[in-house]
């Protein structure tokens, strides 16, 4: 996918910063920003591509706790378009000032709910007309969802020194499918072998990738071999 593989340990702050820049470029947006916190909301981490002046202003005024895109998205299960946030919080200071600093008005914040009550939010934004933005978002939303969970899981794992046992467990079906992929079968082959539809294979593979913090199936297979979930042949 042309992104740094942050699923492999260990991951430093620099790697996350590099990842968020690559994510921005890959999705063709102007800015990307991630904010995540543990279940208590005590440990907050952020990685952003915003201009230094805005970051400084944002931090000085402790805007993270007031930012409506974060506050609202953390309670949404669907991606929150900034147009909806603006309609709910009309005349909000953070949003007005962001636009004074030249930040794009078009944007979306994708909320991620983790298994331990942790919450992550990945925002991307772009200049241009609302119509252009609508099209662009429809085009990138699926990748954006995957990247958001991928990044969030890795950030949470990095800041709590979690042991691998805390990672989501794989099901027998997921392991079985990965094992067949590892020996060179295509998704279609696997479906035929297991007498299940292509789409069932796909939904389990996607879940396996998510649980293994992998953006691609190749990464997932490598990770599964590494952790001895499956055997290399």
């Amino acid at each position: 996918m042309g992104l740094i593989d942050i699923g492999a340990e260990p991951t430093s702050r620099d790697t996350f910063n590099a990842f968020i820049e690559q994510l921005r470029d890959r999705l063709g947006v102007d800015h990307a920003a991630y904010a995540g916190m543990d279940h208590a909301g005590s440990d907050i981490r952020g990685f952003v591509t915003y201009p230094g002046a805005w970051i400084e202003h944002y931090q000085q005024n402790e805007m993270a706790s007031k930012d409506p895109t974060l506050r609202l998205a953390s309670r949404s299960i669907a991606p929150l378009d900034w147009a909806r946030a603006a309609a709910i919080c009309e005349g909000d200071r953070v949003m007005l000032e962001a636009s004074d600093f030249g930040l794009p008005r078009n944007g979306v914040t994708v909320p991620v709910r983790g298994p331990f009550g942790d919450i992550g939010m990945l925002s991307v934004s772009a200049h241009g007309s609302p119509e252009q933005w609508k099209k662009q978002f429809a085009h990138i939303r699926s990748d954006l969802q995957s990247m958001a969970v991928y990044l969030h899981d890795r950030v949470v794992q990095s800041f709590t020194d979690q042991n691998p046992a805390m990672r989501p467990l794989m099901s027998q079906r997921e392991i079985e499918i990965l094992q067949w992929i590892a020996v060179g079968k295509t998704q279609r082959d696997v479906g035929t072998i297991l007498s299940i539809s292509d789409r069932t294979v796909e939904v389990h593979l996607r879940s396996a990738r998510t649980k293994l913090s992998a953006l691609t199936t190749t990464q997932a297979v490598a990770r599964a071999i590494e952790s001895r979930l499956i055997n290399p042949r």
Binding site: R113, G114, G117, V149, M170, S171, V203, S207
Partner: peptide
């Protein structure tokens, strides 16, 4: 990706296998 019924109350349906977890599910 977070707490939901199949990961808990309905886990019997899955025969105690871990539930699917995906950002697009």
């Amino acid at each position: 990706t977070g707490p939901h019924m199949l990961s808990d109350v309905f886990s019997a349906i899955l025969g105690d296998e871990p539930p699917l977890r995906s950002p697009t599910l």
